[in-house]
Simulated scan of single mutants.
Amino acid sequence: MSTLQDNLSLYLVTEESIPLERLEQIIEEAILGGVTAVQLREKTADGKTFYEKALKIKQLLTNYSIPLFINDRVDIALAVEADGIHIGQDDIPLSVVKKVVPLSMKIGVSVKNVQQALIAEAEGADYIGVGSVFPTATKKDASMLQHGTLKIICQAVTIPAVAIGGITTANLPQILDSGICGAAIVSAIMKADDPRQAAESLKNKLRMARTLTIRNK
């Protein structure tokens, strides 16, 4: 049985502008390339559109035993019986989310400093998303972490940490010694000419790093 850390290894975050039919194609190709979890992120969609899209993606992911995480919207996560939900610092507080979702639903929290990471862990987050680790066009308002902050955050908590923000096959090796359990990818897969190949390349980088870590222990 896969652990949460295994599921978070190559974590695909969707791009809202992509039509549903193409989105399903990209996700399926990415899964075949090694993606281990999918977060559906919809910042501007109305509730009905988000729900219908989430239901379609959930059905697809169930066929591959891949967990679905919903970004921000607790109601959508509950409605489609998602495997997890990911919230930011300005969303409904973690303590409140935990009161309304089942124990089986994993909760991730976005953080950008040690204090936020420690609070998330203390309040019961299952994992944290740390970023932005590199410049990203996906979230224009995302501030970049200072050099070394990612590693400091990973060392400060015991729950899994996933790096996010501008990660590509080229720059992924720069953060593999930080203590992250995985990488959250948006554009490098969603906008790739070949999503499967892109996922395979990223997966291979992660696998090589894990092998080296085991050998060095």
Rank of each mutant, 00 (worst) to 15 (best):
E123S: 02
K139R: 11
T158Y: 14
M1V: 15
T213I: 09
I66C: 07
R41P: 14
I214T: 14
D193Q: 12
I185Q: 02
Y64V: 03
L212V: 14
M105T: 08
I92K: 01
V186Q: 03
L145H: 05
V100G: 10
C181T: 14
P67Q: 01
K58H: 05
A137L: 09
Q116M: 10
V111M: 03
T211Y: 05
G84E: 04
L212F: 06
Q59P: 08
L32R: 15
S2K: 15
T213N: 07
I57V: 12
V133N: 02
I85C: 03
Q174F: 06
C154P: 15
E21G: 01
I189E: 11
A79V: 11
R215F: 12
I180S: 05
Q197D: 07
T138H: 00
M190G: 01
V111D: 04
M208Q: 15
I76M: 12
T62P: 00
L55F: 02
Q146V: 04
L32A: 07
G108P: 14
G165S: 03
Y11H: 13
L94S: 04
G131M: 06
T136F: 07
A37F: 04
P19N: 03
L40C: 05
D141H: 09
A188K: 09
S178Q: 10
M105R: 02
K106M: 06
E81S: 10
I70G: 06
L118Q: 11
P160F: 04
V186P: 01
Q146T: 10
I26T: 14
E28F: 10
L206D: 10
V133S: 06
G182V: 07
M144P: 06
A184P: 11
T49V: 11
I159S: 01
T136P: 09
N171V: 02
N113L: 02
K53T: 08
A125R: 03
L10S: 00
G129S: 10
L150A: 00
